[in-house]
Design a protein around this nucleic acid. Structure first.
Lengths: 245, 245
DNA sequence: GTAAAAGTGTACGAACTGGTTCGTTAAGTC
DNA sequence: GACTTAACGAACCAGTTCGTACACTTTTAC
């Protein structure tokens, strides 16, 4: 069920030398058309799944909004779950690509860390559908994700970036605290993610519109400051006070 | 559709003086039985909804695991959504109750803040079903919550607690930074919530079992330290570095 | 040119699911 | 004891949903 995604630009791989150029061109054209059909379905499906969840999504509804028919969905993706998985893989492939393009190797470590946090914050803000898909997959205990080969654990580029910044900060002496990079990534992600994922309940209960621009800016800085303060903190880990509870 | 929850112990309210004692006792007994039936359904329903979401949950499945029948579900809760809403109200009522019981008025502000964070952390850890329900309600854009009168915005007891601790810390001089209490609550909640809600995807991608005890302890302290560091931070808000991105 | 393979549309069906109908039992009231 | 009302059970119904059978066209391969 591993669907090859995001290979729109990869034009040729099966040796075309044997056949004539014309045939090759035609083949490419056909392939492009197929890819377009698939991408079209994928795009609509992402919206539908993000909006309604796996069981809430309707295959007929997806088909209707597509330029093709339900038959094609099953032709290309075999089943509703197959389609869902393809959507999920697609979404993760995107964020991985963007994360890998982050270039924060040089410059002030504090500044680099702020930028990294800002990036995560902005990405989540700009991609609520991704947030929802991840949320939905968690409802299903990541069971589909586990079935996927493309969603293995090759996702560590952002962790490497964080680790590099931390190392540099420690060498410079600005970061006096040692923190596990994955833990830190979680601290950052959780806040960015939560703002989007829990926007509705949190907003309702506390009477706030988390989409508002001023709040967005304030929260962005808040997270940046919190992380930087943590990393700078002269107080050693957890030794400040013994907790009674 | 406002279902009276958590009134198991409230025994009498409709004037019983007119009827005999025996009749009254019998009535109470009957009421108790009804309450038990409702609570039984509610308990099973919470698990089912938490496990499968609103559309994923099956009314028949709930009925089967209950000591009563599907007929009773519709008798007591009118509809699937009615039941779902009752479950949600029940869950929120619980956390509100527990939050209201927090007594952190006196003692060292730093210590109080650590305890408060520890409390939130532990609550989320102990109540994954609550986390899942909130997640699910967010998938639905809090549309059910909005229909509920009992889920209005009277939920601020924890915010008051946070505000009180902050004030005291500022008076003492340990907290040099002014932070909006709701923002701070969000910062704390997000991390605690994320650890549970995104346990599966995050765990899979980074190859970590977030349920592990050592990690739990480490994360608990990490969050506490981060918040304290933020509040202590001598650097003024967001003035540390101008961000290019 | 022709055979195989890939792609596509329509219509349909089997299974499921939320919700109801009808009838029964038990409890409370006079 | 007659009557009213709440609590309950089993079977059932109508609408929906995923998935497919069948028939057809287009593309590719040689």
């Amino acid at each position: 069920m591993t669907t090859d995604i995001a290979d729109t630009d990869r034009v040729d791989e099966t040796g075309d030398a044997e056949s004539g150029l014309r045939a090759g061109q035609r083949r490419v054209k056909q392939r492009d058309r197929t890819t377009k059909t698939r991408d079209d379905i994928l795009l609509v499906a992402r919206e539908e799944f993000a909006a309604n969840g796996l069981s809430g999504a309707r295959v007929d509804a997806i088909a209707e909004r597509t330029r093709t028919s339900k038959r094609m969905i099953y032709y290309h993706f075999s089943s509703k779950e197959g389609l869902y998985l393809a959507v999920l893989e697609h979404a993760y492939a995107d964020i991985r690509k963007v994360e890998a393009e982050l270039r924060l190797a040089d410059g002030d470590p504090v500044d680099a860390m702020r930028r990294l946090i800002g990036f995560t914050f902005d990405y989540d803000e700009a991609n609520p559908d991704f947030i929802r898909l991840v949320t939905i997959e968690n409802i299903h205990r990541a069971s589909h994700m586990r079935q996927s080969s493309s969603l293995g654990r090759l996702n560590t580029s952002i962790i490497d970036t964080i680790a590099a910044i931390l190392r540099r900060g420690q060498e410079t002496g600005v970061f006096r605290r040692e923190v596990d990079p994955i833990d830190l990534h979680m601290l950052i992600s959780s806040f960015c993610f939560f703002r989007i994922s829990n926007r509705h309940t949190f907003g309702h209960i506390f009477g706030r519109d988390l989409g508002e621009a001023t709040m967005r800016g304030r929260h962005r800085v808040l997270l940046q400051d919190a992380v930087i303060a943590l990393l700078r903190d002269p107080h050693a880990a957890g030794t400040t006070a013994r907790e009674g509870a």
